[in-house]
Design a protein around this nucleic acid. Structure first.
Length: 262
DNA sequence: ATGGCTGCTTTGAGCAGA
């Protein structure tokens, strides 16, 4: 089962790029973030035409997340939100079961600045997601948590750690909150297969950041142990960031095998 | 590096993103 996550930064603006990428890579499951669309305007037929069933929650202008599964996979037991009061008013979380695997798709709040109230909210959001997992799953269940976490976990995930130390993606407090989430029993599938620096999933639109490779690795496919053990491949498809009018995020992929009997 | 991009908006200068 090939699983992808991609912050598309506007699904209407990006729909041609998304469908072309789906046709090229043919993931079995894709988690999308930042749909930025009212539900009625969600371009569902474009996904259906490629054989994908779609579950999504959207609110227009901001946020919006989706999980799509390619036939013959079915998408069942869809749950929207679930983080509790003060967190579920934004369209940032959806979950569904595909092929016996629970797939959680999240768009973690950005946080604006480290002195902003929204930064505290971001840390609480990550804490609520940990509580969400504690309440519903065990670390031995086949669970994937995919999405735009807006957190670069380590120095090697940041092009210039000094520049980002006081930013909301890499500041110590949010990295602690992220670590607590992973302590549920989640493993970074990308790091199972790739060490080293210079591997990013997001580059700023400004200042030729992509051309200079000033990026961050903030989009992740996290897996419980039984899933991580079955992860045979992971990648960031930075080619998707190259064209004009690309999303500022690249898709992140993870392949899982031998899922029968889980 | 952070003004220097981008998507979106009861259409346009402002917000939020990252």
């Amino acid at each position: 089962m090939l699983v992808a996550t991609w912050n598309v930064n506007g699904v209407r603006s990006r729909i041609d790029a998304v469908t072309a990428w789906l046709a090229l890579r043919q993931p079995d499951v894709i988690c999308l973030q930042e749909l930025k669309v009212v539900p009625a305007e969600m371009p569902l037929p474009a996904f259906w035409a490629l054989g994908y069933q779609v579950a999504f929650v959207a609110q227009g202008t901001y946020n919006g997340v989706a999980i799509a599964a390619r036939a013959p996979h079915a998408l069942t037991d869809v749950v929207v939100g679930g983080l509790g009061p003060g967190f579920d008013h934004e369209a940032r979380l959806i979950a569904a079961t595909v092929g016996g695997v629970r797939v959680v798709c999240g768009y973690v709040p950005h946080g604006q600045r480290i002195d902003a109230p929204l930064y505290q909210h971001k840390q609480r959001w990550l804490g609520q997601l940990r509580a969400y997992l504690d309440a519903r799953h065990r670390a031995t269940d086949p669970v994937l948590v995919c999405g735009d976490f807006n957190v670069a976990p380590e120095s090697r995930d940041v092009h210039d750690p000094k520049v980002w130390t006081d930013k909301v993606h890499f500041h110590v407090d949010v990295r602690v909150a992220y670590k607590h989430l992973l302590a549920f029993g989640l493993h970074d599938t990308f790091r199972k297969h790739h060490g080293g620096t210079g591997l990013y999933s997001w580059w700023d639109y400004r200042g030729l950041a992509f051309e200079k490779d000033w990026g961050l690795r903030i989009d992740h496919v996290l897996a419980t142990r039984p899933m991580a053990e079955r992860c045979t491949f992971a990648a960031i498809d930075r080619a998707a960031r190259v064209p004009a009018h690309a999303s500022d995020h690249a898709p992140v992929l993870a392949q899982f095998t031998d899922l029968q009997g889980l």
